[in-house]
Simulated assay, not measured.
Amino acid sequence: MLRWRLWRLFWYVALLLSVLLIAMLCYTPSFHCLTQEPLENPRHRPVVVLIWLWPFNKTFELDLCSSLFNIHDCILTADRDFTDKADAVLIHHRDIAWDKSNLPQGPRPPHQKWIWMNFESPSNTVQIPGLDNLFNVSLSYRTDADISVPYGALVQAEDIEDFVPSKKDKLVCWIVSNYRLHHKRMQYYKELQKYVKVHVYGDLFERHVSKQEYKDIISSCKFYLSFENSVHKDYITEKLFNALDLGAVPIVFGPARKNYERFVPGDSFIHVDDFPSIRALAKHLFLLHHREALYLRYFRWRRHFHVMTTFFPGENACRACEYLQQNRQYQVLKDLYQWFWDTSEGLDLPLSFY
């Protein structure tokens, strides 16, 4: 009996000590244990991204991640005093010197990642020597980049409603500034001009158009030539998304139709490859011009989606910060050239939109 009483007394003392210990470590009324919350959690501290080279020497506001893209705990800076402290250095390919003399020259901190950013097509990207094994993260329009930021996207609409395009007074329009006779898109344009009038605007045709004129022109046309300057995997630029957003049906020249269908519904655009000849394409345009019901089918997607275009380069920097918050592992881009300049399609099946 005495042994049992001593054993029970031992458990009472142990229980009392446990309660006292909890009281020391926790506080009321939430019973939030201080030992569970270190004063500084390195995995949740703000991520610092240093903009080393302003893309095309174009500056942007550095405090936009939270307000515009709902990406928090990001510090963007262009102050090179943060070179040793930054979690990542964002470097725009087009602005790298051929001898790399304008890149950071000192020893790289062990925790720091260099981000290679490029939104030009491979045909318009100079292969600067010595970039393999230099960068850790790729940031591009490509869907297989570490950080993929396409030129635009369709976003689910909150309400479903029919879309009625604005009144049109032109059939086909094209705004072009990068005019090169050897571009294949020029051959398509010249051939199409034989069968249908194309209203052409831009630096080398009439004059430079302002942002507002750009919107007004596209909105006034039934069809818009969303012709890319080169054909590469995923290289689908604002030329497509602006036309969709402004109520014109895009006529696209670029990668294969199935590549476009990874970004937008297949019945939202016309691909030049859909026709055996440019003459057949022109005939189809006249058919749609006279058959309003057929033309309006190209806007059925507007009942479900609206267009979002990428805010370059500010959004790209914010997406880089978001990526770093979720990916702490270290890697090196050993075959940057081989990956980006690969001309193979390597496409998956189209996405489902409806």
Rank of each mutant, 00 (worst) to 15 (best):
V13K: 06
L17K: 03
L17P: 00
A23W: 13
L25R: 15
P29H: 12
H32V: 11
P38M: 09
L39I: 14
N41M: 07
V47S: 04
V49Y: 02
V49S: 04
L53P: 01
F56K: 14
T59G: 05
L64I: 15
S66E: 15
A78D: 15
R80C: 05
T83K: 11
A86G: 09
D87I: 02
D99E: 12
D99F: 03
Q105W: 05
F119T: 08
L134Q: 02
S140R: 02
Y141L: 02
T143A: 13
L154G: 08
Q156F: 02
I160Q: 08
E161K: 14
P165N: 08
P165A: 02
S166W: 03
K168G: 04
K168C: 00
V172W: 04
W174D: 09
H183V: 03
Q187K: 13
L192T: 10
V200H: 12
L204Y: 11
E213D: 10
K222Q: 13
K222N: 08
L225I: 05
K233T: 14
E238A: 01
V249R: 06
P250S: 03
F253Y: 15
Y260K: 10
E261A: 13
R262Q: 15
V264S: 11
P265M: 00
P265E: 03
D273N: 11
D273S: 15
P276Q: 09
A282Q: 08
A282S: 14
F286P: 01
H289E: 15
A293V: 10
R297F: 02
F299S: 03
R302S: 03
R302C: 06
N316Y: 06
C318T: 07
L347H: 09
